[in-house]
Simulated scan of single mutants.
Amino acid sequence: MSETTQSPVEALRFPCTVFRTQRRMDDYGADDMRCGDLSETQLKNDFKLNHVSSKVSPYTLTLAKQLKLRAYGYGFEADTDLKSKKITRQECANILFDEFRSLSKQVSFYGPYQKLIGKMIDHMQKGNGAPFRDMLLNAALKEQIHSDNTENSTLLLVKNALTDNIDWEKKCYPEEVKSLLTTAISSGRLPKFDRLQDRVNGLGITVHDIYAAHITIRSLQIDNDRYRAVVHYNVQDHFGLDDDDIREFRNYSLLFRIWFVLQRFNQFAYKPFMTNMEATVEITGNQK
């Protein structure tokens, strides 16, 4: 009678990408990546964007009346003939971008990340759609990952999946249960910047949510009953507005009206761009 032989455990090799969002990286066909696709009539009729700026009209290319200090309080300047205030399209865009930057300070005035929105507005104005990276974004992502202590934390779910499925006798993570890592992460909540502090530190306006993410375990070291893993997050968002964004936020602030018109009005068509972030974090655990 022949003896049954067990198949050897095949170890998962690292680095190994264990999770990808359904939405893909570098998706330039996404709704919020459109630009220059709307006419004045569409902006006014479909999106109710008749009033866009307190400084200028992007439709008539004229300056708005401005309040000036008078002897007995504030009043409009004497010259109220807006036709005499005609400006070029480039001058109009520059004024809108300056107002965009000024308004952004209302939602970005506290903490180490507050200058990010200014950098990203500058990039929209001058970057011609090129991807954007910044060390502050990477630091913000890493801080968010570490600070998430909820049961839905993707980092905690990776840790639990490793602890539960490592073959401690063979000192490896079996390749055949790789899917358990993916399933665990899929049940969690990817990093977002929708906390209370993100309303004032600039992260809510610059990133808020993420569009796509890849999570990779770069290395796994197992010693006796302990392990050490290095996990890399590659995350991407879009600095752009889609139709739903403006319908939701147009009454909230002129900021979104200006942003939407600069991006989507066919007379401006400033390109949105990919916001790329990455963070590498280390986790350790013990055999149960």
Rank of each mutant, 00 (worst) to 15 (best):
W168G: 10
Y173S: 05
Y173N: 06
P174S: 06
E176P: 01
S179E: 11
S179F: 11
S179M: 08
L180R: 11
L181H: 02
T183C: 07
A184K: 14
R189T: 12
L190Q: 12
L190H: 12
L190F: 08
P191R: 02
F193G: 08
F193M: 08
D194K: 10
Q197N: 12
D198G: 12
R199T: 15
G202V: 12
G202L: 14
L203Y: 06
G204C: 04
G204H: 06
G204L: 06
T206F: 00
T206D: 03
H208T: 09
D209S: 13
D209N: 11
D209W: 15
I210G: 04
A213K: 13
I215D: 08
T216L: 09
R218W: 00
R218Y: 00
R218G: 03
S219G: 08
L220N: 05
L220F: 02
Q221W: 10
I222G: 08
D223F: 01
D225I: 03
R226M: 15
Y227D: 10
A229V: 10
V230S: 13
H232C: 03
Y233F: 02
N234S: 14
N234E: 15
N234A: 14
V235P: 02
Q236M: 06
D237H: 01
D237A: 07
D237V: 01
H238L: 11
H238P: 11
F239G: 05
F239D: 09
G240Y: 03
D244I: 08
D245C: 11
R247I: 06
R247D: 11
E248S: 14
S253H: 14
S253C: 13
L254M: 03
L254K: 05
L255G: 09
R257H: 05
I258T: 10
W259N: 07
F260G: 13
F260V: 11
L262R: 04
